[in-house]
Design a protein around this nucleic acid. Sequence first.
DNA 1: CTTTCGTATCGATGGTTATCGAAGTCGACT
DNA 2: AGTCGACTTCGATAACCATCGATACGAAAG
Lengths: 107, 107
Amino acid sequence: MRCSPQLAREPLDAERAAALAQVFKALGDPVRLRIVSIVASHDGGEVCVCDITGAFELSQPTISHHLKVLKEVGLLTSERRASWVYYRLVPEALGELSALLDVPVVA
Amino acid sequence: MRCSPQLAREPLDAERAAALAQVFKALGDPVRLRIVSIVASHDGGEVCVCDITGAFELSQPTISHHLKVLKEVGLLTSERRASWVYYRLVPEALGELSALLDVPVVA
DNA sequence: CTTTCGTATCGATGGTTATCGAAGTCGACT
DNA sequence: AGTCGACTTCGATAACCATCGATACGAAAG
């Protein structure tokens, strides 16, 4: 777990910065941010793709693309059951980012 | 302060998601993430541009561009003193993001 | 006031990305 | 088997972005 490295503790090395930046970049799209928030706030913790598609005025392939991006960076996981695919949050991934950004107010 | 809206509390509306996504997008670049971490971890809280430029193998205009992006989304502020420009962190901005991503482990 | 040094802006360019329609896959039901 | 519905992958296109060299600006020094 690397001891929850805070951003203010010491400068990030290039390798770690590159990995983290990928996750932030995934969150750096309004649609993806809303998708994460939809999944995170859903009772039961998992959401069918159809539920997400219905929340946007975007084509279904576009939503699928965004889901793929979020899955690739480790923010979501997916599972197929019957005809439907369900996505759920990876809380540890968000937690790591939260800890990283948790800069002490008192310097 | 809008009661520190957690991502898991309720789905983000489009407007708020767009604003937040801009900040995450700013952090979604390895160079910018390292710049933020350099500024955040620097004693005294402020860093001269020359200190940042020296930490990368990038041209000075490129660093200046990244600093501008971080400043535009409210993560950094700058002040000119004599010939040098100093950048410092806006802790509240990082804090808001941290609170947003602070998803409770127990669903 | 011209030079010099630190930083910002400009214009161009190559690489990346969001989006779509079309086609492919995978289960389920008949 | 055949078909239908849910979802993903593919190929194309337009918009965006990181980076650079050249240039401009602002402050201090000579």
